[in-house]
Write a protein that binds this DNA or RNA. Structure first.
Length: 432
RNA sequence: GUGAAAGUAGCUCAGUCGGUUAGAGCACUGGAUUGUGGAUCCAGGGGUCGCGGGUUCGAAUCCCGUCUUUCACCCCA
């Protein structure tokens, strides 16, 4: 009986695994050089933990289970709550600022589509304990540092940046009630994805007052931060958050990533917990869903029972990123292909034990080495050596009686007859 | 969760007004080459045509259901 893989999951055959590792290793390397430390938590948590922040409708979108002790658990759909929990637990002993990253495996019970799976990896980078917008700039830089390193330029991707705090202040100025903000965000967030008249219709349902609606339209048509003050009179909160955004763009300029970034007032993010700067990373072609996104969430730790500590961070998933890298032709050519240092072949079965013995010696010295399981023809064994991407092939034949063997460079095809003891000596030296 | 399209070998696909034993290329295995790989040529293995049911003398082909994938919604933590 054949059992298929579960809907929305992926099998990672060795070539897929090489790609996955290449992506994840890059995430980790860039995190570390940007001064972040790695953490991780359990793959399941109390269901309750995910409800605190997002409400009951979220329960339908996560995989939940009841354990034998009757505990209501859920497979983690994100790691930010775990981060908040972990930080709160040791909040008094952690030196600040806290700069942490993680590459969790996450599960969401969504309907799978291109770039959206039920199980995936997500790179999360967060700074906790810094309210300066410099921290927001730094995490955005970190994301771009990676994307730029794998070959995605400002012509390929864009970071659309806005501020929720600013948008809230502006909408309140227009006369929208505070209680209506969340609903309205959801509509505004869709603006760029919907045809104009559909958007107008949806907006009309939320904002029946025509004057207010007109103001919102004007506001959403704004293309630069400067234009905002032409459109509306700014109160103090609005002015502060406008200044903060301007400052953010100055910092991104200083960091050398300004050409990747643009102001986009309709970027809101779906999550309720964002409090200030928010951003999403897209492919410039606009073909794919968001590669990642993030923002400031200054109230979250408090909601999880800790003190009020500011925080900011982003997440980038592996599936959309992989699609984009593949489309841009940036994927396979960057994968490391060489796998084996040595393949040990023998020309006759009488030398097989010698081949096995030498292979083990090479392995113990730290080399990746294989031998043939069959006393096949030498041509077959050399083919195996090529198939396994061996750098060199050691050939054991009748020369071994004179304490000699052949070492063949698989790339150049050159080979030399070498004294066995000398070869071993060379390997010991190389392995240091 | 709603609506739509697709599913034939490991991969990319051909084959359908219903008609013998379902094909190709690539990949894989073996041989040509008894001590030298990547090329070439030859041969071989591999399919209950996604799965289940129905119509029919006869189904990969038509009908229904189901699963999976993809697209549009929903959602996007």
């Amino acid at each position: 009986m054949k059992i298929p893989p579960v809907k929305g999951t992926r099998d990672f055959y060795p070539p897929d695994m090489a790609r996955r590792n290449w992506i994840i290793d890059g995430w980790k390397r860039v995190s570390v050089r940007n001064g972040f430390e790695e953490y991780d938590g359990p793959i399941f948590e109390y269901l309750k933990m995910f409800q605190i922040k997002s409400g009951d409708e979220i329960v339908e979108q996560l995989f939940s289970l009841t354990d034998r002790g009757g505990r209501e658990l859920a497979l983690r759909p994100e790691i930010t709550p775990t981060l908040a929990r972990m930080v709160n637990q040791q909040i008094n002993s952690l030196p600040r600022p806290i700069k942490w990253f993680s590459v969790p495996r996450l599960c969401r019970a969504e309907r799978p589509q291109r770039g959206r799976l039920r199980e995936f990896f997500q790179w999360n980078v967060d700074i906790i304990g810094v309210d300066d917008v410099l921290a927001d700039a730094e995490v955005i830089f970190c994301a771009l540092d990676y994307l730029r390193e794998v070959g995605l330029g400002a012509a390929d991707i864009v970071v659309k940046i806005s501020s929720r705090e600013m948008l809230a202040a502006l909408l309140l100025t227009i006369g929208i009630a505070e209680s209506e903000l969340e609903d309205l965000y959801a509509v505004l967030d869709k603006r760029s994805r919907l045809p104009g008249d559909t958007f107008e219709q949806m907006l009309a349902e939320k904002v029946p007052d025509e004057n207010k609606r007109k103001k919102i339209f004007e506001l959403m048509a704004v293309e630069s931060i400067e234009q905002i003050s032409d459109c509306l009179e700014l109160n103090e909160t609005a002015r502060e958050s406008v200044d903060e955004l301007k400052h953010l763009f100055e910092l991104l300029e200083v960091m050398g990533v300004a050409d990747f970034c643009m102001f986009d007032i309709s970027t809101v993010r779906g999550l309720a917990y964002y409090t200030g700067i928010v951003y999403e990373i897209y492919d410039r072609g606009g073909e794919l869903r968001a590669i990642g996104g993030g923002g400031r969430y200054d109230n979250l730790l408090k909601q999880f029972g800790g003190p009020a500590i500011p925080a900011t961070g982003f997440g980038i998933g592996d599936s959309v990123l992989a699609i984009l890298l593949k489309e841009k032709g940036l994927f396979d050519k960057q994968l490391p292909s060489r796998k084996l240092d040595y393949f040990v072949a023998c020309v006759d079965k009488v030398y097989r034990q010698a081949a096995v013995k030498l292979t083990m010696k090479l392995r113990s010295a730290g080399f990746a080495a294989n031998f043939s399981y069959k006393a096949a023809k030498l041509s077959k064994q050399l083919k195996q050596a090529s198939d396994q991407n061996a750098g060199r092939c050691v050939i054991i034949g009748s020369e071994i009686e004179k304490d000699q063997l052949i070492v063949k460079n698989m790339a150049s095809g050159e080979q030399e007859l070498i004294n066995f003891g000398k070869f071993l000596q060379q390997c010991q030296i190389e392995s240091k």
